[in-house]
């Protein structure tokens, strides 16, 4: 599905990705973890072609992504911070994206699920962070795509919406899709992720199932397991 080989990316003098190689195959939820600034978002943006790496290759569905755009047809992306053009209304935005993708979308069901009906005619600039995130989720989940990339999907969501989100992800997973998630909420990872990719200082420190990680750090709770990894690293 996704194959990354020797990916290097620097922003000025800061090395963000330092030879990352990663292969993600088959359906399931893959959690990309790591401390702040470990390169999670950069990795994701590289896959999407928003960040251009200095070296290395990324293949999505056996297709080299560099300079390409068609492959994004198969990806639904949820950006980390829901930033939208402020002068558009929710309805206009959704309509525009639908128009752009030209695909069948089940936006109505999602709007209902997140209770966004009353906001449809509001300008995006006037919405709260949580509501924007819900719009963000609608935009991401309304198309039927084999690959979903969710960058911090839980940000600003109320518990009810969080449950809805989990259900959505579960549903997509059951549909056999590949879902890439970054998050700092370990509960979320614990309950959702099939496999963990742990990034540290621009490298993949660990890749495996949650159980394997727990075993490696000999801790029962994921949170502690991660913390152990980090402290070991600092020593």
């Amino acid at each position: 599905m996704i194959e990354i080989t020797d990916l290097y990316k620097r922003f000025g003098k800061v090395k963000v990705l330092d030879g990352v190689s990663l292969e993600i195959n088959g359906g399931g939820v893959f959690a990309v973890l790591g401390p702040n600034g470990s390169g999670k978002t950069t990795l994701i943006k590289s896959i999407l072609g928003m960040v251009i790496p200095q070296a290395g290759a990324i293949h999505v569905n056996e297709q080299h992504v560099k300079g390409q755009w068609q492959y994004r047809e198969d990806i639904n992306y949820l950006p980390q911070i829901a930033r939208f053009p402020e002068n558009l209304s929710v309805k206009e935005l959704i309509g525009m994206i639908k128009n752009l993708r030209g695909k069948k979308a089940n936006d109505d069901a999602l709007i209902e699920l997140f209770g966004l009906e009353e906001f449809m005619d509001k300008k995006l600039g006037n919405l709260s962070g949580g509501t924007k995130q819900k719009v963000n989720l609608v935009l991401t989940f309304m198309f039927d795509c084999p690959l979903l990339i969710l960058d911090e999907p839980t940000t600003g969501l109320d518990p009810v919406s969080l449950i809805h989100l989990k259900e959505l992800i579960q549903k997509e997973k059951e549909a056999g899709k590949t879902i890439l998630i970054t998050t700092h909420i370990m509960d979320f990872v614990d309950s959702m992720a099939d496999e963990i990719v742990f990034l540290l200082e621009g490298n993949i420190y660990f890749k495996g199932t949650v159980a394997e990680l727990k075993k490696k750090s000999s801790k029962n709770e994921l949170e502690h397991a991660i913390a152990t990894i980090l402290t070991e690293q600092n020593d």
Partner: peptide
């Protein structure tokens, strides 16, 4: 001011 919009579009299947 259209940076957000640009980012939104970049994730879509459109040529840069």
């Amino acid at each position: 001011s259209s940076r957000e919009f640009t980012e939104l579009l970049l994730a879509q299947p459109i040529r840069r």
